[in-house]
Design a protein around this nucleic acid. Sequence first.
DNA 1: CGGCATCTTTGCGCTGGCGCAATAAACAAA
DNA 2: TTTGTTTATTGCGCCAGCGCAAAGATGCCG
Lengths: 232, 232
Amino acid sequence: MDDQSDVEVLGRTELFRGAPLDLLAEVQRASFRKRFAAGEAIVRQGDPPATVYVVVVGRLRVTQTTLDGQQVIIRYLGPGEVVGYAALVDGDAHPGSVIAVDDCHLIGWSAAVVRDIMSRHSLIAINVARILGGRYLDMQVRLRELSTEKVERRIAHTILRLVEQAGRRTARGIEIAFPLSRQDLAEMSGTTLHTVSRTLSAWEERGIVDCGRRRVVVAKSQLLESIAEEQA
Amino acid sequence: MDDQSDVEVLGRTELFRGAPLDLLAEVQRASFRKRFAAGEAIVRQGDPPATVYVVVVGRLRVTQTTLDGQQVIIRYLGPGEVVGYAALVDGDAHPGSVIAVDDCHLIGWSAAVVRDIMSRHSLIAINVARILGGRYLDMQVRLRELSTEKVERRIAHTILRLVEQAGRRTARGIEIAFPLSRQDLAEMSGTTLHTVSRTLSAWEERGIVDCGRRRVVVAKSQLLESIAEEQA
DNA sequence: CGGCATCTTTGCGCTGGCGCAATAAACAAA
DNA sequence: TTTGTTTATTGCGCCAGCGCAAAGATGCCG
């Protein structure tokens, strides 16, 4: 992984998409690379945001934790996505934690550097707006699902979204390409691991999914979609 | 309301905050004023986003509706806030509808004009990023509440947020300064109007709130806060 | 290969809050 | 005032899904 290839990678991230080559080169010179092992924390909830990253390889989980230790998963981040957006919009604390699910390779900058680039290049500031607009939209949809749908539908929607985001074709069907426990699914769907487990067991019986320990493979996505859309 | 005072108003909006006077004047010249009566739709879900507004006076409700007619309230908008953000980040359809709750006075621009200003002035693009970052953050908090808290706490949090956003001191306590039905509260808290009604009745008995038809006054905010924070 | 930690499954009982339905109150129009 | 419309209240029964608990499966690491 040399500097030249980093420039190419940066040009494909949501943050620097569309930037001219000289800007990408400048951005590359100001960057550093960093690796995190599975389970390591990249960002801790409450910390002051000092660094911005983009994901090169690997998968990250963004969570928010309450005082009494309950967690929700805000989203997963994959290649090309931004980690630590709070540093881009002068938040004074990270609203959530980010943990590596896989072994990850990130490229990072100090917050000041990226903020400076944003103010000198409106294109980058516009990219940030687009990124946050997209995440805001995602949350609107999830909020609506959580408010109006029953658990089974919510779990179905959650899995379909993950398939969209990180699905990998296999012999048995489409596999979600990172380790994903029942607890994780519960924290994304607003339910408990017990209910997720029961639901997946029922689906497995019908041949809709094929799961293992921290592994989910969707065999009949058509059926899953119909569960996600059914009324009542 | 002459052009000069419009410039002052614009300088205080979240979208144009910090802009130099000449830019504000340019923005003002490209703008038009528009009024909406209570109940009128400013934006309809699914429409292509062609116009951006900022609120001068009045209150607006942003909702998202499912195919089968169920609604959730995404947020309320008040003076200084942006209406129709999708037009700023090239969404191809408005993700929700916006309805006037009061009689409203807005200032608007065609999407192309504001997008052009964003690309010529990174400050404005950065403001957009900040706005969307703030809304994204709000949604994270609400999603967490909806996932982890029981109804009574959620309703308490919802009311406290509205008080924060649109509270007005009165003799009886702090009043939410726009008409707000039980149904509205239900659509913000992820429950039914029945449960909201029962909960408010119980609180009224304890003297915590004092409500009427589409009206909520918080008499003992301390007690309401303790309900919002209590464990279990 | 065995021991340990983590993750998953499943039975059972309980309850928060939903859904229905009927009444009452507030407001607007005429 | 009457009439109609929208909004709010409240009783009652029910059930989806939570919480507990205990056993079972899987994979890791020494």
